[in-house]
Write a protein that binds this DNA or RNA. Structure first.
Length: 358
DNA sequence: TCTGGGGTCCTAGGACCC
DNA sequence: TCTGGGGTCCTAGGACCC
């Protein structure tokens, strides 16, 4: 028996859930996002495969999506329903014999297990999820987490794909670095200034060059991504939040100081109830703000002492806003409360956006 | 065509102390 | 008159992920 990492990812998750409860939508272009009104400022959360054929993608503004496919069916995001389905998916994975499950999001997880025939095991996982939820998923198999994660994309939809040390460069070598998990547009651009464009290029890049460009930690980390190397440890320690925040894009820009103060008060009130629910006080306040054309700031301030109080959070956020001395119209406001760590700290850091850490 | 809302982590540099 | 290293705390800002 060999230890494997499986990466399980639901196919078109939000759209699939909506189609399941409205079967007449099957085979049609379905777009889930915002309040389901494509004239509003909001973006696509998930597009069905039929909608993707029109060029609609996650993260795209609904206004653009509706231009690309005026006949698409637009539906609002229904968080409680997806959470319930997600919980069933994750429980199915945990019930799989010998499986250790590390949840990455609503619709994906790493599964660590031992197997002689990992492809057969992956097929069994797919069958179990389909049986429990009626939904399809794809499974990536790897000898590291990075390889398993990347493999899933190659198997979609409803597929299984395996990436190991032996076939990594054969399969991935000619692809652009952006195909890797953890390399986005900006990192790809900076790599290109060193003539690093493909996974082959990155895998061969010396660590000292990458360290000079990206820092002593991040540089070598990016190099390891190119080689598909990294951890194979699937960690099921429950996730503990570091922060909670709320942000809103306003359908009409906010103009006056009063409007902004009021909006910050509303956001801070929601944040207070989120952190109270965990019994954890706020120690630092983050203000996020986007001015009308396109210019986003973040500002941070430590509170004199930890608190739950929405007033203190809102006052601090407003003070940060005033410090910007900018009276342009405001399109987006966000308030985030960074919480006091639990006693003993975060014993098993659970990271989704992590980079570079050992 | 005009950009959501929820998160996490890394890097750099200034201030301050010894 | 000019300036060492090492450490901590803090903020700004960048980047990535789902």
């Amino acid at each position: 028996m060999t230890a494997w990492v499986l990466h399980v990812d639901m196919d078109q998750f939000l759209a699939a859930v909506e189609i399941q409860r409205r079967p007449e939508l099957a085979g049609k272009p379905v777009v889930v996002g915002g309040r389901g009104d494509p004239t509003e400022r909001a973006v696509v959360s998930t597009a069905s495969y039929e909608a993707r054929e029109f060029g609609i993608r996650s993260g795209m503004p609904l206004k653009i999506a509706v231009k690309r496919c005026p006949d698409a069916i637009f539906l609002p995001v229904d968080f409680p329903v997806y959470e319930a389905v997600s919980a069933r998916v994750m429980q199915t994975l945990r019930d799989f014999p010998g499986a250790v499950v590390e949840v990455l999001g609503w619709d994906e997880a790493f599964v660590g297990l031992q197997a002689d025939d990992p492809v057969a095991t992956a097929r069994a996982v797919q069958a179990a999820v389909l049986d429990a939820t009626g939904l399809d998923c794809s499974v990536g198999i790897g000898d590291t987490k990075v390889r398993a994660k990347v493999a899933t994309d190659l198997g979609k939809p409803r597929g299984v794909f395996q990436l190991t040390r032996d076939n990594w460069l054969d399969v991935m070598g000619e692809r652009p670095v952006k195909a890797l998990w953890g390399i986005g547009t900006q990192t790809a651009k900076r790599l290109e200034t060193h003539d690093i464009r493909t996974v082959n290029d990155l895998a061969a890049a010396p660590d000292d060059l990458l360290a000079a460009e990206f820092g002593p930690n991040t540089g070598p980390h990016i190099g390891r991504l190119g080689r598909g190397a990294g951890s194979a440890v699937v960690d099921d320690t429950p996730w503990v939040a570091r922060a909670h925040g709320r942000e809103t894009t306003y359908q009409q820009d906010l103009v006056t100081q009063d409007e902004i103060r009021t909006a910050l008060g509303e956001l801070a009130t929601q944040v207070e109830s989120d952190i109270r629910a965990e019994g954890r006080q706020c120690q630092r306040v983050h203000l996020k703000i986007r001015f009308a054309p396109f210019f986003t700031f973040t500002r941070v301030r430590k509170l004199p002492e930890p608190t739950f109080a929405a007033e203190a959070i809102a006052d601090t956020a407003f003070a940060l806003y005033r410090g910007l001395s900018d009276d342009r119209p405001v399109r987006l406001l966000g308030v985030r409360a960074e919480m006091v760590p639990p006693p003993g700290g975060y014993d098993a850091p659970r990271t989704h956006g992590r980079r570079g850490a050992p």
